[in-house]
């Protein structure tokens, strides 16, 4: 099935088995293995990418459903010699250990900071119409769809706080 995807700013024309998930399109057909397969059914967050600016689990959606969409993966956020501030903060705060959930954490955090900037409330936001502060509680709540078995959570929170420029 022909599908056109713009991935990290580059257009790709793919002819895929319609059963191919967006995650497997990236990993098996485009060599973009930065997005990880942790559970393959939307429970761990390791496959998080941004589609048209919003974070999604790429294992839970078929590639052919995204014809014409813009996809940002970890490879588009920064490269080893050109890391984004968030990636750099994950390194300096040790916001990972084995590193397998890390691209998903960083994609998720990148989009999450946008969500806060746009005034989206979360479960722990006190007032629905007030802007959310970047507290530990808010970060933890909003990052809880990204599991980390090594349990770098406290460092992930610090990395996000640091990259976002301090915060409360």
């Amino acid at each position: 099935m022909e599908t056109q995807l713009t991935i990290n700013g580059t257009q790709h024309k793919l002819d895929l088995d319609p059963r191919t998930t967006l995650l497997d399109a990236l990993r098996h057909h485009l060599g973009l293995t930065g997005s990880k397969k942790g559970c393959d059914h939307g429970q761990c967050g390791a496959c998080t990418v941004m589609v048209n600016g919003r974070r999604i689990n790429s294992c839970l959606t078929l590639a052919c459903m995204h014809d014409g969409d813009e996809v940002t993966t970890i490879e588009g956020i920064g490269q080893p010699d050109n890391l984004s501030p968030l990636q750099q903060a994950f390194v300096s705060e040790d916001g990972f250990q084995c590193g397998y959930c890390t691209p998903g954490q960083i994609c998720s955090a990148t989009a999450m900071l946008e969500e806060i900037a746009n005034g989206w409330p979360s479960h722990v936001t006190g007032e629905l119409d007030a802007s959310a502060e970047l507290t530990t509680e808010e970060i933890s709540e909003r990052m809880s769809g990204n599991l980390c078995r090594c349990s770098a959570y406290p460092n992930i929170v610090e990395a996000i706080r640091k990259a976002a420029g301090g915060g409360a």
């Binding site: 973009l32 293995t33 930065g34 997005s35 990880k36 993966t73 970890i74 490879e75 956020i77 920064g78 490269q79 080893p80 010699d81 890391l83 990636q87 750099q88 994950f90 390194v91 990972f96 590193g99 890390t102 691209p103 960083i106």
Partner: peptide, 10 residues
């Protein structure tokens, strides 16, 4: 190896 892990290139 941190830069590789955070950029999805490990």
């Amino acid at each position: 190896e941190g830069p590789l892990k955070v950029s999805g290139t490990a």
